[in-house]
């Protein structure tokens, strides 16, 4: 079973761009979509922070987060695709890194509903930015799969790192990572304001 899962991950990572029903070539393929969230540092730190916070919040948040986040992000993506104006998207993305980083740094444990609303709100900003940049054509399927999987893997990386918090020194490392994310977010926010 473990081998099968590794094999499927290998497929995703090693697969070349799929030109099936293609209109967009490489830019519209899986690789383009997969790399897209990884080249935006503001996206990366916010997604990792979501995972770190999920690990701090514990069950059921740690399980629900990677399931619910992509779906809420898709709703934000639809707003972006439809061209519905959403003010302050970039500010919202930078603010997500600041707020989520602070939550991790402070080891905040609010009620699940409050955490869900907060993360969901930021997911809409991230989804909006992705949706507005989604390439046209049927190859958009491969592209969107790529960026949804990359986003999910960033969450999982955050969750994996956040699991260190069960040890005192690990807890310090996780909170320090939260602080670093908040500072990164502040830098982005400072550039925008």
């Amino acid at each position: 079973m473990r081998f099968f899962i590794l094999a499927v991950i290998a497929c995703g990572v090693a697969a070349g761009p799929a030109f099936a029903h293609s209109e967009g070539g490489l830019a519209g393929g899986f690789s383009g979509g997969f790399l897209h969230p990884l080249f935006g540092l503001d996206h990366v730190v916010a997604m990792v922070a979501v995972g770190l916070w999920g690990a701090f919040l514990g069950a059921p948040a740690i399980f629900l987060l990677p399931i619910v986040f992509p779906l809420v992000m898709a709703l934000g993506g639809i707003l972006g695709i439809l061209g519905i104006p959403l003010p302050g998207v970039e500010i919202g993305i930078a603010a997500s890194a600041v707020v989520l980083g602070l939550m991790v740094a402070l080891a905040a444990k609010p009620r699940l509903a409050i955490a869900a609303v907060l993360v969901g709100l930021f997911a809409i900003f991230h989804g909006y930015a992705h949706g507005a940049e989604l390439p046209d054509g049927a190859d958009a399927v491969a592209y969107s799969l790529g960026f949804v999987i990359a986003t999910g893997l960033l969450h999982l990386a955050g969750i994996a790192f956040g699991l260190l918090a069960q040890w005192p020194s690990g807890r310090f490392a996780v909170r320090a990572a939260g602080s670093a994310i908040a500072i990164t977010g502040l830098v982005f926010l400072g550039r925008l304001i």
Binding site: I5, F63, L71, A74, G77, I81, D136, V141
Partner: peptide, 27 residues
């Protein structure tokens, strides 16, 4: 954990499909 993984795959697939469907219906 495997069943959670299956739910995550479902969520990722749904998110991708919803986004592309919206794109195709709009353009």
């Amino acid at each position: 954990w495997q069943q959670t993984g299956r739910r995550i795959v479902g969520s990722w697939a749904a998110a991708s499909a919803i986004l592309v469907l919206a794109l195709r219906l709009v353009k």
